[in-house]
Design a protein around this nucleic acid. Structure first.
Lengths: 246, 246
DNA sequence: AAGTGGTCTAGACCACTCT
DNA sequence: GAGTGGTCTAGACCACTTG
């Protein structure tokens, strides 16, 4: 690849040099020039490639690191960030059963459906486009605790539509990365309050109409595409969350 | 004041020079050498005072800015941060009535009491120490929406214990800063769901036992002292909050 | 020992704010 | 125009990781 391609950074008007450098590098990452988990060239090499001072390239890389695109490890290198790790729904709930324990997952239902309007709007696909719909129960200490509905755009998740469910992992995101190369990079969790429908309540062993906390998550990959819509419900009395205000 | 006092930064073992500089500056801020809202010396002056390169001092100041201790304004200077601005409880609730509107406040009760154990533990004072307890109703569009209980350590808030309540502002934090020089710098909001007691429900015009969202806030000043404990309750169905996960 | 990112320096120049 | 923080450079040296 021609190293002289990336020159004279301030292409963008009104942007500092390091900011447009960061933008250029982000584009190279999104284009897949380096895949998640792999290393970028050393900062010194990137600096000469883009013919800027080392310090300027460092600022650009620091910016990308702040934004969660890359990860810098002293002595090892600079890496394209892997998918989210700490995205567990347990951040929102506190159950008596053992702490830190990963909830066991049981897929109750898997089907191809045409996306309802609300779902397709969030996923950014056409109404009626095919999606994979999952119903999933999560148990801790043998007790059913969370009930989840997921919608996944079928064009990305086709290989997971028909395979053996017993091979599925309790944690979905690492499996998504391994099986269909979908890396969840960012997520928005919308928290609200509702009451359990009869069928939801049955799965959780609670009475219908029981108060529940409801988390609607939309998850995005590196390119900003929405790759998952998930609604998680659990007993409202087990909900807790701490917000740090500064 | 002797400018030669602040020398040879790496006092702390295992800390980088800019990190210990930041620590030293933080100490000077907490000690009240510069009060909230006022300007620090120019970075060039601070650099020579502490006999480090300009770039090193900049890193230290950037660190303090990230942590919310100071605020840097291009062309104007570096300032000790004023109290929190966007700490409104409305971030947690969505009512039909006008958006952006500041809720009207009505103090229902004000009394000096001896802190119960749970309160004194959060406030970091001795059990039974005197505190100011407030009950406060917040209305939007004429409708009562939020019911709050507050506990304030009396040693800081004495002037607010007996004055004319009609002079109170709808927003407490700016008033705290103006009247008793208490600047809220940081807060922790603990969110949960519960049910309204009979008296809480009466104030909100809801039936007893109605589900409510409950926010327990502990607020801290620059020195890290807890200066307020507040519990806010509102209709659970009006609760919503969005968490960004990266 | 070689290669990586992290710290620190010294100095030039730019962009913004106020008077 | 004077004073502030923001950008950029060029180069030395340090600290961590791996073979």
């Amino acid at each position: 690849m021609n190293k002289a391609l990336h020159l004279v950074p301030p292409a963008e008007p009104g942007l500092s040099r390091y900011a447009s450098l960061a933008q250029a590098l982000r584009a190279r990452v999104i284009a897949g020039e380096w895949s998640p988990g792999s290393a970028l060239p050393a900062e010194s090499q990137l600096a000469t490639e883009h013919s800027v001072a080392l310090g300027t390239m460092r600022r650009a890389l620091e910016l990308l690191a702040e934004q969660g695109f890359i990860e810098r490890i002293h002595g090892k290198g600079t890496f394209v960030r892997q998918g989210l790790s700490g995205a567990t729904m347990l951040r929102f709930f506190r159950f008596d059963s053992g702490t830190g324990e990963v909830p066991v997952s049981r897929i109750l239902q898997r089907s191809r459906v045409n996306a309802p309007a609300a779902v397709s709007r969030v996923l950014g696909i056409g109404t009626g486009e095919p999606v994979l719909r999952l119903h999933r129960l999560r148990l801790m200490g043998g007790q059913p605790r969370l009930f989840e509905e997921l919608w996944l755009p079928l064009d990305l998740f086709e290989p997971l539509a028909e395979d053996d469910l017993s091979t599925w992992d309790d944690l979905l995101y690492p499996m998504f990365a391994r099986r269909v190369q979908v890396h969840v990079h960012r997520a928005l969790d919308d928290i609200g309050f509702a009451q359990l429908s009869a069928s939801q309540a049955r799965h959780l062993g609670l009475p219908a109409g029981h108060p529940c906390a409801q988390v609607q998550r939309s998850a995005y990959d590196l390119t900003g595409r929405c790759v998952e819509l998930r609604i998680t419900r659990g007993d409202a009395h087990a909900f807790h969350y701490t917000v740090n205000i500064t």
